[in-house]
Every structure is written in structure tokens, then in C-alpha cells.
Write a protein that binds this DNA or RNA. Structure first.
Lengths: 191, 191
DNA sequence: TGTACATCAGTGAACGCGCGTTCACTGATGTAC
DNA sequence: TGTACATCAGTGAACGCGCGTTCACTGATGTAC
């Protein structure tokens, strides 16, 4: 509870970091200002020195979560090949730690019903993710189309593997998506 | 506001039908008992004659939404070929009417964080959907694996097409998934 | 068939609770001289 | 460098509000005789 300007900037970072994890773990609507500030070791009144209100927080927390998710993906390994991305994205570790994982998978369903700001942030990151996949496909035909399909499959498979109440099925979903993506990456399929 | 037993059964149906549409349109957490009962032309106090509480309602509403979504898919056409399913599931009409559409796409993200009941209902319907796709694949190799991947892609693509704040990208996501699914359905890809 | 009564679907006021937000205040920071 | 003071990050009590839930009540239903 320092009072300097540097302390304030650090507080803001702590609040957003806690919010980023919280929303990926329990959803955008789970964000409560009192609980969030407690998680950042502050009191709820101070919140309004950092954000204009809850709506602004949600938009900023989502942007932060999308960025954090991308960062931890890049940390997972420098290998940007399709198979490396698919293996890491569709891993049990990723499935079991949504709070550190991809915010597109964790929050795109909810974002569908959120503000224009939230949808815009999602759209930007979906496009970016798709371009990463497209680059990994080299110069095979219809690479952009395949990249969008692969991104859709990754996001869908991770979500469904998380909802499955049955470990066998959950693993099977991840494995099926991984293998189908590798097949698509080989580009042999006629389109 | 009748008082007979038949009236009560009808009231229950009206409540669940309203809830089923509401959650697919605005999410599980958007269910408010007062608003729901008003939508069914009843007063909020009567709710507890039908359901033990909000948690039970959410589980039942989700089950209803999953069933309603399946029903409207079957109504869309008797053609159970892969291309017919993909065209209907990944259509603009489906994207633009989540309240009448597939509850897996609308709610699997949120269901991830819900009760065991909710996840079990989701799992059942994911399995069922996957079996429908598997049947449409005939006897090509690894049909079950492909079916799970196709279901993942459909759910992911519909969700991402809804979150995209840009009509061109949204349409492109749907088209890419449709075409990639057709290619997968031809079974020519080496696995 | 007619009557008396128990049942129970639905009503609407009332409750406690957690929420987002406001605000008077505290005390460390950082600046002007 | 030292002092006086304005700034402002953070505190915590208080607010109104909508929520889920309870409950005494109303009046139509349906059954017992």
C-alpha cells in the first residue's frame, strides 16, 4: 500500500494480472470488484482510482488475458511449426490450466454477448492466431482457409475437452484434433 | 393462471422453453428468476412450485436447450449427409439465431465451469452429435476420430463466427470450416 | 347429481445478501521556496 | 539541504439496487360423501 506513482502503476498491473487469471478460470461475469481487489491485496474503494467502472475493467481484463495467453504460448517453445503448436495447444496441461491458457478458448463463447470492445479484442487475436497458423502451413494452396479451419478446430476441441466429464473422451477429443490438424497440415487433401 | 394440474404442467413447459431460449441467447448466468417468470407470464413466487432453486433450474434449462437445439437441427431437413449437416450448422442463419440454435456452441464454454450435472448433459450431447457425424462418414478409416475433429471444428467455427465483429471475417470462418469438413468427409487424407 | 371441503397453483410483499459505486478521510509523496 | 504544503493512492463506511428465496394468502380444482 505505497503512495508513489510507481506504486500505482504496479497496483494496476497486479489488478489486471489477477483479473486476467480470474476470467480465464471462471468467466468474465465472475469478476467481482471487491474480490478482485482483495486478490490484489487492496481494498475495493481504491478500484476507481484505476478504472472508470466494471465495464471498462472487463474490456481491459479481456485484452490482458488475450495477451497473457499468447505470451505463455510463446514461452512454451520457440518452435512455430504446426505440429509443435498443435501439440502444445491441444495438450492435457493446457486443458487443465485455463487460467494460464488461451483466452480465446476460455472466453470466446461469453465474448459473443459482450461489448463491441470485447468482441474487437477477440477478433484481433483470432486473426493473429490464424496468421500464425497460416505461416506454419508454408505455401500450400488455400492456406488462409485451412488456417481458419484449424484455429476453429483447436478452439472447439480445447473447449469440448474441458467440458467432457470423462477423462477418456476428453483425451480422445484432444488426440483426434491433433492428428486431424497434422493431416490437414500436409496439404494432400483436395479442396 | 389456471389452477389445474394440466395447467401446472403447461406452466413448467413455458418456463423451461423461455429459459432454454434465454440461456442460448445470453448465457447461463443471465437467467434471473424474476425475469424468467415474467417472460412466462407468471410471478416470481410461483417459481418454487416448479423447481427447488436456481441451480436446479440451470441444470434443467441446459438439458432442455440441448434437446431443443437438436430438434431444430432435425427439423431443418431430413438429409443426414455430412454436407447437409455442415451447410446447415455453419450457416449464417444458425450463426445469427443462437437462441434457436445448438446449445453446445452457445454454452459449452460456460458449462466448463458449471455443476457436474451440466457437464454430464453437455457430454451426452457432444457424444450424440459426434455419432451422427460418424454415421455420415460411412466406413472410411478412423471415422470416430474424424467425427470428433469435425464436431470440434463446427463448434469452434460457429463460436468464432459469432464473436467476429467483422462480417467478412465471420463469413470466411464459416466457409472455411464448411469446405474443410467436406474435404475431410471424402476420406482421401492420409492419417 | 349436488354440496362441503381439502388441496394446491399461483400471487405479491418482505427478507437478507452481495454487488457496484460514492465519498470523506488518512497519510505518504513529491514539489516549491 | 530543510521546511511547508498540495497532491493523490489507498482506506473503509455507507448507499441503493437487484437478486434468490420465503411465506401468508387467494381462489380454482377436484374429491369424498
Amino acid at each position: 500500500m505505497g503512495h508513489s506513482q510507481a506504486d500505482k502503476a504496479f497496483s494496476r498491473q497486479k489488478i489486471l494480472a489477477a483479473a486476467s487469471r480470474q476470467i480465464r478460470k471462471a468467466g468474465l461475469q465472475s469478476l467481482s470488484i471487491a474480490r478482485l481487489m482483495k486478490a490484489a491485496n487492496l481494498t475495493h474503494g481504491g478500484f476507481y482510482g484505476h478504472f472508470a467502472g466494471r465495464d471498462v475493467l472487463i474490456a481491459e481484463a479481456l485484452a490482458q488475458a488475450l495477451q497473457d495467453g499468447t505470451k505463455s504460448a510463446h514461452k512454451a517453445g520457440a518452435d512455430r511449426s504446426l505440429s509443435a503448436i498443435a501439440r502444445s495447444y491441444l495438450s492435457r496441461a493446457h486443458r487443465d490450466s485455463p487460467e494460464n491458457g488461451c483466452a480465446i478458448a476460455a472466453l470466446s463463447g461469453e465474448a459473443t454477448r459482450e461489448s463491441d470492445d470485447a468482441r474487437a479484442a477477440m477478433t484481433t487475436h483470432v486473426t493473429r492466431f490464424s496468421e500464425t497458423i497460416e505461416n506454419s502451413l508454408g505455401d500450400q494452396p488455400a492456406a488462409r482457409e485451412r488456417a481458419l479451419a484449424i484455429v476453429s478446430m483447436m478452439v472447439g476441441a480445447l473447449t469440448l475437452s474441458r467440458v467432457a466429464d470423462n477423462a477418456t473422451l476428453s483425451d480422445e477429443i484432444l488426440r483426434s484434433a491433433r492428428q486431424t490438424i497434422l493431416a490437414l497440415g500436409e496439404g494432400g487433401e483436395p479442396l
